[in-house]
Design a protein around this nucleic acid. Structure first.
Length: 775
DNA sequence: GGCTCGACGCTACG
DNA sequence: CGTAGCGTCG
């Protein structure tokens, strides 16, 4: 097991998460991986032929860089030098020459050395040209020997090769293309190259390649597939730079079940290790990582071939392992981040069903509405202008209409960099009573945003009725997951109300009378579940505030969360704060409390809070002050974060995730203040992220154990998990999700026992638009 | 004149 | 606070 494999390298004071102590997270149990293609939704799989987004930047190859790259197995000796938008599937070619040699070897397997069998054992030091053996060219006896070698190996280094001849360990390619250029691309993964290190002879590797591109069913022989799965499930330490991408390619090309087929794969990823060490500067490419994180010996210009890169990969991971252990990050790495990799890969392949026709029809509705609003804007301004141009809008509002001069008491915000008069939402709100234009512009902005980002933008990503988002583990310094291409985590939750008033002109909800006919659009409505299945959402209620209660140990906050009662937390807080009765709390008070609370979490200043509250700076200050007086622990907690950061140069979350913040001692007030807010915010946001990830791993583990329950994880939105569940299993899943997620705090108890409960609220429905709350 | 790029402003989500 | 992504502008 990996755990035992690596335990000897771990410091004694290592605290393991409870999760990892159970064997299920760890590899070695072959039977638990479903190879049954009948369990795979073929309709969905057929839509995943291409992986977009993450492959965008490797379309082009640099022939000059590849001059001394040796030919590996089925890869690049005759790779196209020209850029190809659509990659023609390259069927795995026979490993020329090599195959002949090994085929002619004597038959007595037991008497042969590995070299004799495989002809590929190789000492990497030195620039020897060396080829890997392609698995598909092996005879049954050779495969048997290979399996034996795998079972006796001490380490396996893995990487993808692409049809253009580059690899995962390639030099950085052309500058990244714009997101729009990445749409509808074909996947270009060509093969999986594995260097197997033998236990007996540490310096000897055996190189094997598994074809991916053009892998038809007829070619994916059971034997070949089983060998690759054996590697992935083996307890041997495995290393890959960007393991998520590797897993993604394997799941697709070998038609594995994206949810259950891979969740026990354990691969060390140096990319993630580097990000844990310095989350603000995550490596993008392998060579970039070497430059930033690896000192001395590896910086030398190594021979540019696949095999030396693989050896380098192993050395670097060894180095990083030591670094992680020294920084007390190893448990976070091995128990949280590494188990997450196959889950994310599975989510990418799984995708989510989208009704593209609905996206288009909504878009057309908005197109007309936008035109109407445009006309009204021109009328109110007295002439046509480009409403989306801040420069022109500034001219109209502040030079022609001089609206800013009509509100002398108010201080209107300025833009960040150029210090010009801002046209932001908060500014426009303040001008609303002076002239019809500001509100029209706000409406226009809202409609344009919804149309361009969430209707047209999403529509571009629909392929075969599905959207396959990319999940990025290393792009957020706080430890949160991030989705992109498209970003599925910021699709509006609130519906858009469209009203037509008596004149037929469009107005938004704030001014429309309740009797006018209304159209209601939910941007999440086009996302729908399969027949016989439903969406099922589970989200942690106000997790960041609960984390704050725990971390600050503030007596009042702790009491609020632990005295239970189903009353809304912000209503309760408002009571505590203003000394009101529960029934006397008005919605406005509740909203105000919520904003103040999160402002404190985010560490914003009085000016910013005044803006969000639409109140004066003095009142905002007073609010914040009375809040901090009521919850004295919060302020001491913030100060503790700041001084910890000053002492150590970094702050830590409850699971030891850290962030280096050097500006904490800056002489510049603004720079230092920003750093202080970052420090406080990171501890809370990062701790919440830790727990959400732990919950995610835990729930996927439990679901995969109950193989009768049909549930798939589709999306993670920080504190919320969206599943698709078979209708017959809804009640069972409801019970599992609630129990398992709410037990998350106990999982990490060896690291940290949370002093507050983390209740989960559940909802379900046939579309993502408006889910029904469950009780 | 069209095209690409980075900087900037704004606003969804948490 | 911190993500992604759309739009304008020079």
């Amino acid at each position: 097991m990996v755990h035992t494999n690596t335990a000897s390298e771990c410091p004694k004071e290592m605290i393991a998460l409870k999760m990892a102590q159970t064997e299920k997270l760890l590899p070695g149990n072959q039977n638990s991986v479903s190879m049954d293609s009948s369990s795979v939704d073929m309709k969905q799989l057929s839509t995943h032929a291409g992986s977009k987004g993450r492959t965008q930047h490797r379309q082009t190859s640099k022939p000059s860089k590849r001059e001394n790259i040796c030919s590996i197995g089925s890869s690049s000796s005759d790779a196209p030098t020209a850029v190809k938008k659509r990659v023609v599937p390259t069927f795995h070619r026979k490993a020329s020459g090599l195959k002949e040699k090994t085929k002619n070897k004597p038959e007595k397997l037991s008497q042969m050395s590995i070299e004799q069998v495989m002809g590929t054992t190789h000492r990497v030091s030195g620039a020897l040209v060396q080829a890997a053996k392609t698995v598909t060219s092996m005879s049954p006896s050779e495969l048997a020997k290979l399996q034996e070698i795998i079972s006796e190996s001490s380490e396996m280094l893995m990487m993808l090769t692409y049809t253009d001849g580059s690899t995962q360990l390639r030099e950085p390619n052309e500058p990244r293309k714009r997101a729009s250029a990445s749409l509808h691309e074909e996947g270009v993964a060509n093969s999986v190259l594995v260097a197997i290190q033998r236990k007996a002879a540490k310096k000897e590797y055996m190189f094997v390649s598994f074809p991916l591109a053009g892998l038809g069913k007829e070619n994916a022989s059971e034997a070949t597939r089983n060998v690759l799965l054996e590697i992935l499930q083996s307890s041997t330490r495995k290393v890959c730079f960007d393991a998520q991408e590797l897993m993604h390619a394997i799941i697709i090309n070998y038609s594995l079940d994206p949810q259950s087929g891979c969740n026990k794969w354990v691969i060390m990823d140096p990319k993630i290790a580097c990000w844990l060490l310095d989350p603000d500067n995550p490596p993008v490419t392998f060579s970039g990582m070497l430059k930033t994180f690896v000192t001395g010996k590896y910086n030398d210009q190594a021979p540019n071939n696949h095999l030396t890169h693989l050896e380098l990969l192993g050395l670097v991971m060894g180095d990083l392992t030591n670094k992680l252990q020294r920084k007390n990050l190893w448990e976070l790495f091995i128990n949280l981040e590494v188990p997450l990799i196959p889950i994310l890969a599975g989510m990418e392949v799984q995708g989510i069903q989208v009704n593209q026709k609905m996206l288009i029809s909504y878009s057309n509705i908005l197109k007309d509405e936008i035109k109407d609003v445009e006309k009204q804007c021109y009328k109110e301004a007295g002439h046509p202008f480009q409403i989306t141009s801040h420069i022109q809008l500034r001219q109209v509002l502040f030079v022609e209409l001089k609206l800013d001069e009509q509100c002398p008491g108010q201080k209107l915000a300025r833009t960040n960099v150029q210090n010009l008069k801002s046209t932001s939402e908060t500014v426009l709100h303040k001008l609303i009573d002076l002239h019809p234009l500001p509100e029209l512009v706000l409406t226009h902005r809202q409609l344009v945003k919804l149309k361009s980002t969430y209707l047209d933008g999403l529509s571009d990503y629909v392929s075969g009725g599905y959207i396959h988002t990319s999940w990025d583990q290393t792009s957020a310094a706080s430890g949160r997951l991030q989705s992109s291409n498209p970003n599925i985590q910021n699709i509006p939750k609130q519906p858009l109300q469209l009203h037509k008033d008596a004149n037929g002109s469009v107005v938004n909800e704030t001014t429309a009378s309740s009797t006018t006919p209304a159209t209601t659009l939910w941007m999440r409505e086009p996302f729908y579940s399969h027949d016989g299945w439903s969406f099922f959402a589970a989200d942690f209620q106000s997790i960041e505030l609960r984390i704050l209660a725990h971390l600050s140990q503030d007596a009042v906050l702790l009491k609020v969360f632990n005295d239970a009662g189903s009353t809304d937390i912000f209503v309760q807080l408002t009571c505590e704060w203003l000394g009101l009765n529960l029934d006397d709390v008005k919605t406005a008070d509740r909203e105000r409390t919520k904003r103040i609370v999160y402002s404190v979490i985010y560490g914003v200043g009085a000016e910013r809070l005044a803006e969000t509250l639409n109140d004066t700076k003095e009142n905002a200050k007073a609010f914040t002050k009375s809040f901090l007086v009521k919850f004295k622990g919060v302020n001491t907690f913030a100060q503790r974060c700041i001084s910890e950061c000053q002492r150590h140069g970094h702050v830590k979350t409850i699971f030891h995730r850290h962030r280096l913040i050097s500006n904490i001692s800056s002489q510049n007030f603004h720079v230092r203040s920003h750093a202080e807010r970052q420090a406080v915010n990171f501890v809370i946001q990062g701790s919440a992220a830790d727990i959400c990830k732990l919950a995610m791993i835990h729930i996927m583990k439990v679901l995969s154990e109950k193989n009768t329950v049909r549930a798939r994880l589709l999306v993670q939105i920080h504190d919320e998990l969206l599943f698709e569940v078979h209708d017959e299993d809804i009640n069972e899943v409801k019970g599992i999700l609630k129990t398992v997620m709410e037990s998350t705090p106990t999982l990490g108890e060896s690291i940290c026992q949370l002093k507050v409960p983390l209740p989960v609220s559940l909802s379900y429905g046939k579309t993502w638009g408006h889910l029904k709350q469950m009780v």
